[in-house]
Design a protein around this nucleic acid. Structure first.
Lengths: 384, 384
DNA sequence: GGCGGCAGTGCGAACGTTTGCATGCTACCG
DNA sequence: CGGTAGCATGCAAACGTTCGCACTGCCGCC
């Protein structure tokens, strides 16, 4: 591999000049620059990223942590992140935690040490572990918020239990230790929920307007005459799962719908199969499912059991993965702007890295897309 | 971040000693080592990978190129690769080419410059481009072979056309330019095909025993009475797709089956939908599909068109992705050891990196798993 | 008792960059 | 015509490691 020295020798200049020739903001006489660039081209010189990284402290790489690459949701996010980062001259390290919250801190540390910043997609670990692991690292969350650790002044639980992952009201910090990232500006609201404009301190995050998403779902079901709907929730450790359940309860009172929590399921096809059995055993006439992968499982299981969708049971998913269109009946689901989610997260991270005063995050709007898997409630209550 | 200097000061030794304390093969008095390690622990010291990389020329990172992370096949491979590499102390960069052969060379170059070696999963680019881009880089192929560029002595085509991607007979190189990687040992055969033990020069590769896979498929279909079967092939640029088609033709003569090539399709659910229409329009009573994702599309489309599977049409997929079990009828498909594929590729790459004389590659056995989507041929030829 | 050997440690160079500072040169102005 | 501003370039240090080499004791052997 050619180095600056080789180029310098060939062009008859010093290595400083070579280096500067690659920096557009550096003043170099056009003639010299042309000569250097020519020589570099000839020798096939490319600046060595590692050496550059050592000197500048910038690796031009970012880390991405996902719970499961096998989930189309995260695969899509990864694709988007990777494409955007690369377009901005950044390479991306990917780590898959296999849905295990325990390993996340170590993965975060491993990624952080080689990268300029981290993207954490739906991390499953609890807030305390995350804050510990993220100490001193620049990060952006995707699809999760993380309020700063509570102030020591607050009445401390004597137990060493870690706080559960539950969506909390944006909390006003009285005297908490200042967050390293100083991300206290207000969230840029793009969604429709009024809460979107609330102050959310902590690590900057790109989230989805789950409240609005589930509200749209429930509104739709209510309009179709459903009065009893089941919730097939995602994994306990999922912030968005908890958040959506909370959102559903909020919306349920508004539309006078009775909610039945069918349980927490693994966010996979197989989890959906389980969920379907729970739904059938319940008086629900519709089931809202944590994600499309599960919803496809539900659909398949219902067909297997001879239950007509949407005639006897309506099913609504979340994410709008490509498969959703293609199954029969096509899945009514909530479209989330996956590529935008990834892109925005990268942009936000890069902005923070370059020191620009970036917004503390954003909440992206989602949209119910009505297809065939949800229909009018059956005339008489299901007699199964 | 603490550096060697901090640790050295704290432990009262020189930085060399600190560095050596982390190298198990270095002789350091146990007392000193303990003191150093203690200080390092106390200060939270971690060797800086970038600085280390600069000095040693080893980044302890590998690159992985995939055509599409959205495809469960590659998602699974990525997971496996990532897990294995991490276990061996390597981080992995992922690049997704979005099924575009054109961008692969640039992605390869970008990855290669920051990593110790590359894993190329089913690269779509032609051999010449790949060899150009891989000049001087250590790489391992997954699910594709790459014979070395033909010797200049061979009658050269006057045109500048790039050679198409077709599986070739393992070719005996008369005087080709020596392959940088010197990977000419014979392949470790794990499959059942006799050809598996043939000499395959070029870049080391972990492949699947496609010949055996498609032979099993055709044997099964033949036993079920099918005499006319359609082939829904994958993308033209896919080496394995071409290879499987070739394998099918070889097997067809053996079992006296008539093959109908339905066309090349995008390796997605949507591609399967197209393929299904082609199949229905043909006299085939069974269709063998390039991968499961497509096969699921076929299944769905057939159901939509009211065609019973397997009563009127049998469908066989390839890959055995998780969804295959869960759909109705469950997909008869070929199980490929995805995680093993990833693991072995990493192992092979790491072996080459460490200079151990590693095998030139391996071919992994595959296995037809019989589920519900293929059944006896209909009594009378399909009258559609 | 002297000396060779070896275990343990330190010194300093090197990896390929970037960048602050010094320097030389040109050109302009008084 | 001399001084100086400012532009273009070079010098050298620094980033945090690793590792070849040199050095210091100490032990044991003859």
């Amino acid at each position: 591999m050619a180095t600056v020295h080789d180029v310098a020798r060939d062009a008859g200049v010093s290595i400083s000049t070579v280096s500067r020739s690659f920096d557009p903001s550096s003043k170099i006489s056009p003639a010299t620059r042309a000569r250097v660039l020519g020589a570099a081209e000839k020798l096939g010189y490319r600046p060595h990223p590692v050496a550059r990284g050592l000197r500048t402290g910038r690796t031009h790489a970012v880390g991405l942590l996902v719970p499961d690459l096998g989930n189309p949701f995260f695969a899509a996010v990864t694709k988007a992140v990777q494409a955007r980062a690369r377009a901005e001259g950044y390479e991306v390290f990917v780590a898959d935690s296999d849905e295990d919250p325990e390993v996340e801190p170590e993965l975060i540390r491993a990624l952080a040490i080689r990268t300029d910043g981290l993207l954490l997609a739906s991390p499953r670990a609890d807030a305390v572990s995350l804050y510990e692991a993220l100490d001193g690292v620049i990060a952006v969350l995707l699809n999760r918020e993380l309020p700063p650790p509570v102030a020591a002044a607050a009445p401390p639980e004597p137990s060493s239990e870690r706080p559960p992952i539950v969506p909390e009201q944006p909390l006003v910090v009285s005297g908490g230790r200042p967050v390293a990232l100083d991300a206290r500006a207000s969230v840029v609201a793009e969604g429709r929920s009024p809460a979107a404009s609330a102050v959310v301190p902590g690590i900057p995050a790109i989230t989805l307007d789950d409240a609005d998403g589930v509200a749209q779902i429930l509104g739709h079901l209510s309009a179709l005459g459903h009065r009893t709907v089941g919730i097939a929730a995602g994994p306990k450790a999922s912030w968005s799962a908890a958040r959506r359940v909370a959102g559903l309860h909020a919306a349920a009172t508004r539309w006078d719908v009775r909610l039945i929590e069918l349980g927490d399921f693994r966010p996979h096809f197989a989890g959906g199969i389980q969920a379907a059995d729970h739904a059938v055993a319940s008086p629900a006439t519709a089931v809202v499912v944590f994600n499309d992968l599960m919803a496809l499982g539900v659909l398949d299981r219902l067909r297997q059991r001879g239950i007509d969708v949407p005639g006897q049971m309506s099913v609504i998913g979340y994410d709008d993965v490509p498969l959703a269109t293609l199954v029969t009946p096509a899945l009514t689901t909530v479209r989330v702007p996956l590529d935008k989610l990834g892109r925005r997260a990268v942009d936000l991270l890069l902005a923070r890295l370059s020191g620009t005063t970036a917004p503390a995050g954003a909440q992206l709007p989602v949209e119910l897309v009505i297809r065939g898997s949800a229909g009018s409630a059956p005339e008489e209550p299901p007699g199964r």
